[in-house]
Amino acid sequence: MPQAGGAGDDRYFNKWYEAQYNQVKPKPPLVKNMLWAFVVGGLICVIGQVFANYFVDMGLSKKEAGVPTTIVMVFLGAFFTGLGVYDELGRRAGAGSVVPITGFANSVVAPAMEFKREGFVFGVAAKMFVIAGPVIVYGVTTAVLVGLIYWIRH
């Protein structure tokens, strides 16, 4: 009979318990989550495409249209975070609203809003990148590495 080990050193009990836990652990509703992610992620991309087409119609090249489209999408992500809508969206859509660039805007604006009460220097400015910071650090590092490989090979 397993005993709840006093200091938690009963390995037999711990193993048995972990197995029990894995059995009763609720599984995420995969199909529902994927459907939400697909629809919301897809819609965000459609909105982006509409703006990209608009900028091409304005006379920009396809490549140039990427920059103003990104600016608009980042603005929309930040705007809906400010309205308190984006977290509700993310709760249901998961990666569908995290992966597009609007999710990146959300990850910067959310902590900036949350820590406003700690002041503009140590609150807003210092905490702004607590979530996005790692993405920027590893994103830039990867870009430099890939750039180096490209430069050496050509």
């Binding site: 977290d87 509700e88 993310g90 709760r91 604006v109 959310a110 949350e114």
Partner: peptide
């Protein structure tokens, strides 16, 4: 996380 961050629990 900050309360307005769009995460799935």
């Amino acid at each position: 996380f900050p309360t307005e961050l769009g995460v799935q629990r």
